[in-house]
Design a protein around this nucleic acid. Structure first.
Length: 422
RNA sequence: GUGGCCGUAGCUCAGUUGGUUAGAGUCCCAGAUUGUGAUUCUGGUUGUCGGGGGUUCGAGUCCCCUCGGCCACCCCA
């Protein structure tokens, strides 16, 4: 049997983890700046939770979940998204009872799909949710928080699209109007659209088929069917975004694949990643908490795919903080070897955050320096038996053309601090 | 689930109408270099030719199956 990760499940190698770490670190910092608290959720939940939350007839639940029975015959699923589990945890621990919560989480999600650029069977999401806040101010906050993250990361050319699906009755009345319109043109619908017509008519609106474009253009707009409160909510959101200087476009054909959304929906889209251009998506889901057994609680959230963001970061060449070693310690000789290890520990102790790699496995100085260079180290510290006896070390720069100097151990932390600007 | 392209050293790839021991560059290792890296020169290591079956005297090359990758549809982060 050949050793091989299973399809759609990827190893993230050191070549990419620096970008991952930068992304996750920036997100963590951003969420903290807005007062969102970290929550860690299980990867496995009862299958019914997802059926009830995401929607029984959605593709995600019908054909993309990893569902199995455990040894106790429980019907379980790997989570295909984070919101359902978040709401479950919130209700279970009383976090949503008559209070506001701002929460975020991060982790793997699982969907049985055909892998493709930016789409994998195990993928990772950052997920933020706010509960107990009904007004559009928190909608704007959520979007502003995502925009701040892009800014922090240096991501460019992301387009924000927003829409409102309305609440309660308007959803149903719009849906009926749309179905009626589509039925009038049923003969011109392609097979996919016909299938959606009965399963999830709103999704006909974001059909990619050019043949459908004309029909979709003539379709009734959700925005004409909004109830007055949803209309006002949507207007205030737009005002809020303008106040914050966040550019957006209203796309009345923007819908969501998961059933729980109400009112505000939005997506951040890039044209630089091929077919999987949605890098962050979310919206309001004011009915879900009650629907899952909690007290009525307004809610809004978004999720963002790590793999897609990392691809975009790489494509746009965003700068990732250097994680290469600051110094690489080369030693030759038995006395030097022992001294080198003491020297390395001493440096880590003396300078907080200093990255020190100690050459292991011996080798000639030439090989050791080559390793230091390959590791990306800024300085090589060269320690022979002579230097060790004198408690000194040769400091050689590997990145700039400065003369090599001999420095006593006692002065080394200061010298390094100055040269590394730490 | 549907369709297109593609799997040959760690990486990028070449392998002629099927024909002896499967190649190049790069990487890595060693030497030139007297304790001093990234250049140069010299030498060296590296492969179940994705896997299985078939056709053939003979298969990296042809056929079938299968696994995997990329791209698009679909779906969606």
């Amino acid at each position: 049997m050949k050793l091989q990760a299973i399809r759609g499940f990827n190893d993230v190698l050191p070549a990419d983890t620096a970008a991952w770490q930068h992304l996750i670190g920036s997100a963590r910092a951003t969420f903290a700046e807005y007062g969102y608290q970290w929550i860690v959720l299980p990867v496995v939940e009862n299958t019914n939770l997802f059926k009830r939350a995401v929607g029984e007839v959605t593709d995600v639940v019908e054909k993309e979940m990893y569902t199995f029975k455990d040894r106790g015959d429980e019907d379980l699923s790997l989570r295909p998204e984070a919101t359902a589990g978040m709401v479950r945890a919130g209700i279970e621990h009383g976090l949503l009872h008559n209070q506001q919560q701002r929460l975020w989480t991060f982790g793997p999600m699982f969907r049985y799909e055909r892998p493709q650029a930016g789409r994998y069977r195990q993928f990772h999401q950052l997920d933020v949710e706010a509960y107990g806040i009904a007004g559009p101010d928190v909608d704007a906050e959520m979007i502003a928080m995502s925009a701040r993250l892009w800014k922090k990361l240096g991501l460019r050319n992301l387009r924000l699209e927003i829409n409102s699906l309305g609440a309660g009755d308007t959803r149903a009345s719009y849906r009926n109007a749309l179905v009626e319109y589509l039925k009038q043109h049923e003969d011109k619908l392609d097979d996919d659209s016909k299938r959606r017509l009965s399963a999830n008519p709103l999704r006909v609106l974001d059909s990619k088929s050019p043949a459908m474009a004309e029909i979709v253009r003539g379709a009734p707009s959700v925005l004409d069917h909004l109830d007055p409160e949803s209309r006002a909510h949507f207007d205030k959101l737009q005002q809020g975004l303008r106040d914050l200087g966040i550019d957006f476009v209203v796309n009345p054909r923007l819908v969501r694949g998961l059933d729980y959304y109400t009112r505000t929906v939005f997506e951040w889209i890039t044209t630089e990643l091929g077919a999987q251009g949605t890098v962050c998506a979310g919206g309001r889901y004011d009915n879900l908490v009650e629907q899952l057994g909690g007290s009525p609680t307004p809610a809004i959230g978004w999720a963002s795919g790590i793999e897609r963001l990392v691809l975009l970061m790489q494509k746009q060449g965003v700068t990732i903080p250097d994680a290469a070693p600051h110094v690489y310690v080369c030693a030759m000789g038995e006395t030097a070897d022992r001294a080198a290890s003491r020297l390395a520990e001493g440096l880590r102790e003396a300078i907080k955050g200093l990255r020190v790699v100690l050459n292991a496995g011996g080798g000639k100085l030439k090989s050791q320096l080559a390793r230091a260079d390959r590791a990306g180290a800024r300085f090589a510290l060269i320690l022979g038996d002579e230097e060790a006896a004198a408690e000194a070390v040769q400091v050689k720069s590997l990145r700039e053309d400065t003369p090599q100097t001999q420095v006593p151990w006692a002065e080394l932390p200061e010298a390094l601090r100055a040269r590394l600007h730490l």
